[in-house]
Design a binder for these strands. Structure first.
Lengths: 154, 154
DNA sequence: TAAATTCCTATGGGATTACTAGGAATATGG
DNA sequence: CCATATTCCTAGTAATCCCATAGGAATTTA
């Protein structure tokens, strides 16, 4: 339960990799982190739209963080991939149903949300990307990712 | 993100209803809580297998809690519907990948799990079913549930 | 100018979700 | 004793989401 989508896990591993490498191409990140290269392209693009990474096109280009990793709270990453934190429809909006502010289930879910939110705000990308890691582990859904060759080095 | 399945929301509302009514048939719970009657049958059955409710078949039968609501932590209900709390595969099992105990992402997800778990253990069904509620609110996915007639009273 | 790269759109298979349908088994009240 | 209320069981299904894959256009540089 409360399974985190592979997409979000990939995003986090990719960003941790970028934090450590200082910037890299999608293909090389994918190779290093064992993620489908084409799929990762879309993820990085989404992270760019969210203002977490920036990119350079063309030969020698790639992605890099817009800020130091220590200034990127995990909640921002998760929100970029999955949108607002909302376990049930009526969280943060007591007008959804007639019980409104007095609804106990709503308070319960609100408490869950607050709990998760506070944790995700308390951790940042630098905490995750710190030594002595080289390869960032984690399992997604893909067992046999496309072996796109990542040629050349920067 | 972290959307809670309608099924789990239904289960909680149904149990809160049972806590307040002292026991009722699936059809009447469904009517009172605006949940599809047939769908709710399956949910209550699942809760029975988990030892949270018990049932009497036949005329005059229905479902009731096996224990006082105050002795049913919310985590037990959620676990009954969705299984173990496991945001990622490697949580609680560092042997899943080679990084094992030193994997930072794993520690991160472990922290998230602990945070959610601790909250769900801190709230029980009685907290949720308390006054002054009559109808328990909450929205699921069904907009037009089957209007199964719940005839008769106990 | 060829190669490396991001960027864009479309498609598809598999799994899950939220039911719906039908009826068998069982107990009770009248 | 039997009609009725109830749980219990199994199967199907439409819609949605997830995790990619595929192909190529646009862009930049060595």
């Amino acid at each position: 339960m409360f399974q985190v989508p592979a997409k979000t896990q990939y995003a986090i591993r990719a960003l941790a990799h970028l934090a450590r490498s200082g910037g890299d191409s999608a293909a090389r990140v994918a190779l290093a982190q064992n993620i489908s290269a084409k799929y990762l392209e879309g993820i990085l693009n989404q992270l760019k739209l969210a203002g977490i990474v920036t990119s350079d096109r063309g030969r020698g280009g790639g992605y890099r963080l817009t800020r130091p990793a220590s200034e990127i709270p995990m909640i921002e990453i998760v929100a970029a991939m999955e949108g607002e934190l909302k376990p049930v429809e009526c969280v943060d909006d007591s007008s959804v149903c007639s019980r409104g502010a007095f609804c106990m289930p709503r308070k319960f879910w609100q408490g869950l949300k607050d709990s998760v939110e506070s944790y995700l705000k308390s951790v940042n990308l630098a905490d995750l990307a710190e030594e002595p890691l080289i390869t960032i582990c984690g399992t997604g859904k893909n067992k046999n990712p496309t072996k796109t060759e990542a040629k050349g080095a920067r």
